[in-house]
């Protein structure tokens, strides 16, 4: 329990930090300083300069907002869509169930990168279109989990009894199914951040010169041998956030599944 509070505090702290980061950043993340190209870290420029002499520390702070905001947006989009579809399929059953699940199968049959490239190709390059494209396929995962949980719960006698005593579908969903889904969401944030970083790396995410951890990695990949700190810091930031949310999700899961 205490562990959970600590993790919640750290996460909230991180989110707040990403919101106020632009005010904390010592320099303009877009400012180019030719004297500091690929400069190694020192006391004034903590994390050094990148290939255009921009300050990596400032870019990391500014990038936190874009990285976390896109990840949260993404997870909100796909989980809300997925939970609604899964709940409809699970509670209604019959034709709606079959229809939703078959649509899901169809979407999963697409390789996701191809799907994203097609959608982005139609809607234009940009992080929002990538998020839309990914939400359109990844909701399937949530809908499947939700559907299975709903079906499993509905077959429980105590759910039957709860319904007979006036519990509505919504209450059953919130009471018995949401806790499990919240854990899923937390465990998923890490994956999403990595995936979005991957799409930024491919040029399908946040567009340069705006800083985002994924595209910082992508831009600096050719300097991996001459100036590894360009990749190390954004990589480390991604790593830490992913570890944090995974740990958070697992703690939550242990707490909810323990009696």
């Amino acid at each position: 329990m205490k562990k959970l509070y600590i993790l919640i505090s750290i996460s909230i702290f991180l989110i707040l930090l990403s919101i106020v980061a632009p005010y904390l950043a010592p320099n303009d993340p877009l400012e180019i300083d030719f004297s500091r190209i690929l400069a190694p870290p020192d006391e004034i420029y903590w994390l050094g300069g990148d290939h255009l002499g921009r300050y990596i520390f400032s870019r990391l702070l500014h990038g936190a907002r874009a990285t976390l905001a896109t990840a949260f947006l993404m997870i909100a989009g796909m989980s809300i869509l997925g939970i609604i579809m899964g709940a409809v399929a699970g509670f209604r059953g019959g034709a709606s169930d079959t229809l939703i699940m078959r649509i899901g199968d169809m979407l999963l049959a697409f390789p996701e990168i191809v799907f994203v490239i097609v959608v982005v190709g139609m809607l234009g390059v940009g992080i929002f279109n990538t998020i839309i494209a990914l939400s359109l396929i990844w909701w399937v995962k949530y809908s499947r989990i939700t559907r299975v949980l709903v079906k499993k719960e509905l077959s429980n006698n105590y759910i039957h009894a709860a319904r007979m005593s006036g519990a509505s579908d919504t209450r059953i969903l919130i009471r018995y199914i949401m806790p499990v889904l919240i854990v899923q969401v937390c465990l998923n944030i890490g994956t999403i951040i990595i995936a979005l970083a991957g799409f930024s790396f491919l040029g399908l995410g946040v567009q340069p010169p705006a800083p985002e951890w994924g595209n910082m990695l992508s831009e600096s990949r050719i300097y991996i041998q001459t100036a590894p700190h360009l990749m190390i810091y954004p990589g480390l930031a991604i790593f830490l956030v992913v570890v944090l949310f995974n740990y958070f999700g697992e703690t939550l899961r242990d707490m909810l599944t323990a009696k």
Binding site: N157, Y158, H160, A161, A162, M164, S165, S168
Partner: peptide
Amino acid sequence: EKLYGSELTAIFQNPSSCLN
């Protein structure tokens, strides 16, 4: 759904399976 609880309710055979 509206009737359950206030108007219509049920008691079942196996009491332990009726509670979470």
